[in-house]
Design a protein around this nucleic acid. Sequence first.
DNA 1: CTTGAATGATACGGTTCCGAAACAAGCGTT
DNA 2: AACGCTTGTTTCGGAACCGTATCATTCAAG
Lengths: 116, 116
Amino acid sequence: MGVSLTASQALRLWQQVNLAEVHDDAPDLSERQMAILLTIYLDPPPHTVRGLAAKLGVTKPVITRALDTMGSKKLVSRHRDEADRRNVLVKRTVDGALYVERLGDVIIAKAAELPL
Amino acid sequence: MGVSLTASQALRLWQQVNLAEVHDDAPDLSERQMAILLTIYLDPPPHTVRGLAAKLGVTKPVITRALDTMGSKKLVSRHRDEADRRNVLVKRTVDGALYVERLGDVIIAKAAELPL
DNA sequence: CTTGAATGATACGGTTCCGAAACAAGCGTT
DNA sequence: AACGCTTGTTTCGGAACCGTATCATTCAAG
């Protein structure tokens, strides 16, 4: 099980994908924002501010601010939980799904180009 | 030639590595900074501000500022080119090499854990 | 009801970053 | 020496981010 990579392949893949993202002037997300975005799109809901903070090992304001920024870019959206109005549920958006899908395509393409 | 990944594997890999980086409170590098750092460590020298700007498709001040930040974290160093003193040569550091090496290990480990 | 715990958001002071423009320094040719 | 050209840095106003601390709202239990 799993995918085998050499050190050279692993780092080259990381470089190529980051270069591609910078070049396509996609939103310049920080590592934290990327981790949040992918967690929302890959892990099963519901996603709360507190839950995301715990999963990333950061404080709540970090999550709130990241959601502010990514929300203004339409990558995620926030909704009050009507069952417990203290909670905020973080949900996917069309633009966010497109961003993630495109990122996946880039990773696959760059992995396919790796030398043996 | 190349490494085959499914969309699910590609995105899960990206999430897991980013989560690991955030969790280890390694320096929170932006995509641009990561692209610069890996280019310095993977591509053959010499590396100049102008060359890096061209490779990333950004302006020179972006490179200067990124080198300021990463330099203060000892991840890269700058030296005047004595042959042509207009040039600044960007070089590797011990700390930078350790950072890159550790990143490679994380990528390899997370790739190995991917479900089929 | 009132109190205490839980959840997110906000305020604060400080750092970094952005793009565009201006700047300083070095080179090479005349 | 003086001129353009190249290279890298700095400046500007404006925006985003950090960690810590505080605030506002909501729930739930006494």
